[in-house]
Design a protein around this nucleic acid. Structure first.
Lengths: 127, 127
DNA sequence: ATTATATAGATAATCATTATTGATTTTGCT
DNA sequence: AGCAAAATCAATAATGATTATCTATATAAT
């Protein structure tokens, strides 16, 4: 695989933010540095980065995928109102992963824990 | 909310299967009983059933949502090859849920644990 | 049974994502 | 440095999943 500054910058941007942006949001931000970049390039490179394991894709069921360059073991809190994702310093336990592995279903490459609810901000603004 | 036999049957079908079908698969199956039903009706009712808490939506990031009428506490194993979902009798621990609640991020309505890998069938068929 | 409202069915529209294509950039070699 | 081959880009078209719209039908209450 060849080097690409666009891909480099996409990852840089992802590492610089605590948000868990969608491809569209990433596109808007990367555009400030590379005004000519196209949305397809963002998608292509996000897919590559995910395959390389440098970025994680977070699926919440809200219709778009979110991305996170923090690959350390942590989980996410998803607000079903504002669709934001926050980090939670909780991880699937070793026991849980071992238990899943020993079911014999197949390899366990990833274990992810997602909490869903309504965040404080949304509750304060009545919802 | 009014009663609807179509909605009733969608739930019946979902309860009758161990698969975790997509809207499209549900549509194909419900069509055998209600040949005139339309895909939009399936989506509309799935959304309603999820809102009622009678059905759960499972997001794997494979491009389509899967549905499950088994609302008991359990987790899922997702094969990234064949895109099938299997049940795993492991649940997020009370400790994990309490810990998530006590972060103060917001309410915790749901905690879901997803294991991803390559299932046995796919490995046997070399992939 | 009549009437009001919710849902169905058909279809069009939208939105996210992927594929295609020709131009440009990067790499590896001399 | 200069050049050919391969990879990536930008632009855009295509696809696929999901949602919205609109008229007809089914449901529920009187």
């Amino acid at each position: 695989m060849n080097y690409s500054r666009q891909r480099e910058y996409i990852k840089e941007y992802l590492m610089s933010t605590k948000e868990h942006p969608t491809a569209e949001v990433i596109y808007q931000n990367v555009r400030e540095e590379y005004p000519k970049i196209s949305l397809g390039t963002v998608y292509r490179n996000l897919t590559l980065l995910v395959e390389l394991g440098e970025v994680k894709k977070i699926s919440t069921g809200d219709g778009t995928e979110h991305y996170d360059a923090d690959t350390s073991a942590h989980s996410h809190y998803y607000c079903r109102c504002c669709h934001r994702i926050m980090d939670v310093e909780i991880t699937p336990s070793v026991d849980q992963i071992l238990a899943a592995s020993s079911t014999g279903l197949g390899t366990v490459e990833q274990a992810s824990l997602l909490f869903t609810g309504v965040c404080k901000d949304c509750m304060d603004n009545g919802k």
